[in-house]
Design a protein around this nucleic acid. Sequence first.
DNA 1: CCGGGCATAG
Length: 720
Amino acid sequence: MAATLSTALDVHYTIPHSSDTKRSTIFFTSPLKFHTKRFTILCTSSKSPPKPPPPNLAEPQQQKNPSLSDQLKPLSSTILTDTTNKDQLSQTHLLSKPKSIWVNPSKPKRSVISLQRHKRSPYSYNPQIRDLRLFAQKLNDCENSEGAFMSVLEEIPHPPTRENALLLLNSLKPWHKTHLFFNWVKTQKLFPLETIFYNVTMKSLRFGRQFQLIEELAHEMIADGIELDNITYSTIITCAKRCNLFDKAMEWFERMYQTGLMPDEVTYSAILDVYAKMGKVEEVLSLYERGRASGWKPDPITFSVLGKMFGEAGDYDGIKYVLQEMKSLGVQPNLVVYNTLLEAMGKAGKPGLARSLFEEMIGSGITPNEKTLTALVKIYGKARWARDAMELWERMRSNRWPMDFFLYNTLLSMCADLGLEEEAERLFEDMKRSEQCRPDSWSYTAMLNIYGSGGSVDKAMKMFEEMSELGVELNVMGCTCLIQCLGKAKRFDDLVRVFGVSVERGVRPDDRLCGCLLSVVSLCEDSGDVEKVLACLLRANPKLVAFVKLLGVEKTSFEIIKEEFRVILSDTAVEARRPFCNCLIDICRKRNLHERAHELLYLGTMYGLYPGLHNKTANEWCLDVRSLSIGAAHTALEEWMGTLSKVIQRQEALPELFSANTGTGTHKFSQGLGSAFASHVEKLAAPFRQSEEKAGCFVATREDMVSWVQSRIQSPAGTT
DNA sequence: CCGGGCATAG
């Protein structure tokens, strides 16, 4: 198999792997692509094309309005018909800032947004407001049934005039009661129900996510000839969005244009958010550009929508673009915008930029809230920036910045990320003493994570017992942390008990928990223990257990392993695939199935689980084992040495430097891949030395490598 | 007293 794997590793020399495929930089590196892409908002990239209005919808009154998709013809086609020298124009315009396109158009573009916000009608002071508020409270407090509601309603202190009815309608919750009251007012027929009555009712229905009812009301408005205004549409659209009915949101947005109503910026940013939530980045940017071209100066909420979208995409260039746009338009970010952008920076993996953005925010005089601090604490924890995390924590205390439940739990998780056991314990005690923030399932899980990764088994078990006593739910992550910890401590009987209790208490094992059990199997010295742990795994993933057994059957062919492993991996969550492969390799090595281990590493490489394992330049060949388990790293090193021997024997060109990167294990609790690697290198007497410049890197010169390989060829000792 | 944006995990 060795030859086959070297072939696989060789494949890596030539195929550049890209780990950055999720970056979308449409707008910034390739404006041409963006602007020339044919785009119609409702048709092209939507999985479900827009349906015609349902038959019970009245026909829109004004057919003269083009559909939105017609209005949003690609910018490029509009520009190119305006000139004879198309090539030149497309060059100059597409490379300049998009908005410059609109400086002097021969025909003004049709506007897509109304620059005037919908005006609200003023209301006059109602002297009965006090009575009516008390009455509304009474209605809110009564039993949530039609009978109870109607009998309280008979005690209404003042006649339900238009103003009184509106006031009551505005004060009612939950949505059932608003709806009952709306219907009651309708049956009274004391005055015609105007748009505002529908709007207020819809707002309440949206709280209860009652899209069906909202749509019924909208159809009723259409049938009765009651005008739908921007407030109506934005409420319908945001309700559809919250119910994940994106097609519905688009359908109503489209209908709005068709009836000749121009969205104002509230409706417009609501629909931008709909597209953003669907991940339609290009569509959002196109809409944004069209709005800008109509003379719209977006407000902070719009930028928050854009920032969130780029954050979800992990697109740092996009986040930069949002900041630039705000700057050039003179829009000052508010607290929510900063919160969104901080979170986005975290998702884009830019802790340093998140830190400067936070300082900029403080500098501009904005006080952070719980959400700001939650985002930042999470970022520092994940980046393992212990110093920044502790400084921030100190600032939170000395400035008395607000704390809440999320923030407590995030601080606990940060302690887990940084290995701060004592700090976490103090925090946890604070929470127990507090009124508002008693530890919940998240808090206990964080503690299980801290004790689990720190190897404090007894403390972890104490948490587990405490959870049972207090009735705190154990979730799959807490269970995984505990199992991992018990496994490392070789307390297999406790492990089996914890697993059983967890499943009884409703924990549904996921792929990460299976990976954890598999890693415990690789730690077992005794075959009886192996069976115990496999029995747990059998309840969660019988196929995986069958595969583990198959690996030990000597006559199993490589082809069978290949196919069965493929099936296993395709049934496995992406984030658990490499851990599975690592553990399986470890298991094989533990059982002295070294050939099998090499086969699995080969297959793992084939199936793309180890991108960038081997990097080759003219000067340096580097084996990057940072994402490998100890057994897998040993296997990869052996494989690499085998390949090098052949290359040297064939007298092919070699680089000056060889290096193996184990990483430094920035996590306090990481398992020490570097030292394991060092001792394996020592056992092989390979000429690798710890690099002085680069921590976690082992280096060897060409001369040393060649003489070592040649000595091994002469006396092939210690080849396993 | 009618409409839009922000948070917790192995």
